[in-house]
Design a protein around this nucleic acid. Structure first.
Lengths: 211, 211
DNA sequence: CTTCTAAGTTAATGTCTCTAACATATGTTA
DNA sequence: TAACATATGTTAGAGACATTAACTTAGAAG
């Protein structure tokens, strides 16, 4: 009398699932399902219906939480950006202020994100989300860039973010971004010979941060 | 007796349109329609049906020329890459061999492509086409990168593409790529103050190409 | 002139997004 | 504690889309 709908629920576990009718935290469940699907099959391959099946709800359920498909994708990318920012903050821990190692740590984290969650990474940093025009997403991107700028400023002994800081931060960001794409395409070896990622980041930091 | 299907044909003109039944060069017509739609509404917004309406044919017609929707997109990006490569070659004309101006000209062309055809640019260089896994597309991308490497080699006085050439070429490519994204987001002014694109490309070339 | 084939067409199938109308819990308030 | 308001589900269905199958047309080749 109560389990008529409990077809697939045992496979998921991202919430409380109180009653059997109500999911508990469907929003989070859908975001997770969508994230996995987008990572698996790309933004195009992913369908709302499939995410519903994965979460064990009807195909109309998402529209209580998201305006439409695009907003689901935005939510997924946004959630990815939160984790990304957390990781960046964590990466700085224990490294002394003003050390170029801090900048390198951020670079490593960026590359790491690109490699472990390539679909989300490309959605945010490959320009796809431009079409979605979400303000929060723009802010989140700006926030991560500002973290880099602050570290660059400290390295250069500047007390604020000057034009010069902005320039160098931009170059660092761009090259790490390029590096991320190369690594994903497994073309690093071909390009850099025996150099490891740390070698490259070290070298890069030295060059761009030098006075 | 012959014009029963000639509803929208007068608006298009990319071929011969022989009979009224046969289009003349539907493949090219569809690529052009698709290109415009993708540029207007993004890869997701675009639909095969809409491209058919634009080209004035039935929704089944494209499948005589393309395997599926993805292949249509691939064809559009591929065609864009051809034009891009033509432009790059044209940009070099008249600039003496070995001059860093040649590298700068390529950079300017890259940025130009990013700004005039942002959707195609992002499809190819934003990593989207990875999911499509088309060999010709990979080759085309490699080809443009090799053009840069050759020019960099000549600037550095190298007779072949060494590890060092590869490294510098990569940095140049990455930064120009980053610049393209910034420009599209209209954040250049904020970052670079009064500097123009040519200033930035000039400065960049000087720094990275210096011995 | 007949015939072959490339390039169209119509019609149909199954899937998808999204909406409307209805159902069920949960928490609030009398 | 009972009644209600609200949030969160469900079913059913409309309209668009991608793709296929079977048929048609016209231009070329023998």
């Amino acid at each position: 009398m109560e389990d008529t709908k409990n077809l697939e629920r045992s496979s998921k576990d991202p919430g409380l699932k109180k009653s059997g009718y109500h999911h508990g935290d469907l929003r989070a469940g859908l975001i997770e399902a969508t994230r996995r699907l987008v990572e698996e099959k790309g933004v195009d391959g992913f369908s709302v219906s499939e995410a519903c099946r994965a979460a064990g709800v009807s195909t109309a359920a998402p529209y209580k939480h998201f305006k439409n498909k695009d907003e689901m994708v935005v939510a997924v990318v946004m959630e990815g950006m939160m984790r990304f920012q957390d990781n960046m903050h964590a990466a700085l821990e224990g490294i002394p202020e003003g050390s170029p190692d801090r900048v390198r740590a951020l670079g490593r984290q960026y590359v790491n994100f690109a490699l472990t969650e390539p679909a989300i990474f490309r959605l945010k940093f490959g320009g796809y989300t431009d079409a979605l025009e979400d303000e929060n997403l723009d802010e989140a991107g700006q926030g991560t860039f500002n973290m880099v700028l602050e570290e660059v400023a400290k390295c250069l002994g500047e007390s604020e973010i000057t034009q010069e800081v902005r320039r160098r931060g931009f170059v660092l960001w761009s090259v790490v971004h390029g590096l991320s794409f190369l690594l994903h395409d497994k073309k690093l070896a071909e390009m850099a010979g025996e150099a490891t990622l740390d070698d490259l980041l070290g070298d890069l930091g030295d060059r761009v941060l030098a006075p």
